[in-house]
Design a protein around this nucleic acid. Structure first.
Length: 273
DNA sequence: AATGGCCTGGTG
DNA sequence: CACCAGGCCATT
């Protein structure tokens, strides 16, 4: 499930492979994956444009084109954006969109569950307006007091806030559970009940686990691979996520699974308080 | 704030 | 055969 570290890993591999490439053609076996446009309309705005650089905002991949326009790609659950070297238009079973590059390669968007979306924006302002996201937790300008202020006025469980992209951008189910584990906080604690020293611990844990996720090139539970088709390896370093019934790696008690905001939530009821 | 819909492959 | 996974959006 691509969260901030996975999307950042894809961004890096895409940038290394496709910056400077020119778009030649588009084919959309699943037209709905393009937001608010038909495939023909999409082709008309991206044709012959050069991909300048790949960026990331929260879980959105962004790409700047040479005419000032931007594309965004959201992989949602099962989306993959891979660069295919063969000139053959080889279609995978779940290929939803192909962006043909002038050099013969293909930027292929595969998505088993059809949740992922690509969008085009004429400029940076319209892009930012369309994505009302909170601050990046790994942004240097995002301090512990900023984080505490976001939590102070809210009654929802702390985990719900971590998952809310308008509060902080990029955190999903895996890294939320991991950060709460490292901060030793129960996921259902009301956000406003956190003491400044507790929110500071969570701030630290969140940044740490996201940066380590990036360093390990993301978590591959089932579908996730980067633009080169490589899996990540942070799944080998998870403390609680997916470990229901197994011993807590800190205290030995059983990891429990509960539901918060309709999401499976893995935690240790003994050392997370 | 909580719930349902979008989706499809895998599981019980 | 029913149900679950889950990010995000729309609806209540």
């Amino acid at each position: 499930m691509p969260e901030l570290p996975e999307v950042e890993t894809v961004r890096r591999s895409l940038h290394a492979r496709t910056s400077g490439a020119r778009i030649a053609w588009v084919e959309a076996p699943f037209a709905k994956c393009i937001e608010a446009m038909t495939p023909d309309e999409f082709l008309s705005v991206v044709r012959d444009r050069q991909i300048m650089r790949w960026g990331r905002i929260g879980k959105y991949l962004t790409t700047a084109l040479d005419d000032g326009a931007f594309l965004t790609v959201h992989l949602r659950m099962t989306g993959r954006l891979v660069v295919v070297d063969e000139e053959i238009r080889q279609t995978g079973a779940h290929t939803r969109l192909m962006i043909g590059l002038a050099d013969g390669r293909i930027l292929r968007f595969d998505d088993q569950r059809k949740f992922g979306r690509i969008a085009w924006y004429p400029d940076q302002d319209s892009l930012e307006e369309a994505l009302p996201l909170g601050p990046e937790p790994i942004d240097e300008r995002f301090g512990p007091e900023d984080f505490h202020a976001l939590l102070a006025s809210r009654t929802r469980p702390i985990k719900s806030l971590l998952l809310d992209q308008r509060i902080v951008a990029g955190v999903g189910n895996i890294y939320a559970d991991e950060a709460l584990f490292y901060a030793k906080l129960a996921p259902n604690r009301p956000a406003q009940g956190l003491q400044p020293q507790e929110s500071r611990k969570l701030w630290l844990a969140l940044r740490d686990v996201l940066l380590r996720g990036i360093a390990h090139r993301g978590t591959s539970m089932r579908d996730y691979v980067d633009a080169d088709g490589r899996t990540g390896e942070f799944q080998n370093h998870l403390m609680v996520y997916g470990r229901e019934g197994e011993p807590c790696l800190r205290c030995g008690n059983r990891v429990q699974r509960i539901k918060i905001s309709g999401r499976s939530t893995f935690h240790c009821p003994v050392c997370q308080r």
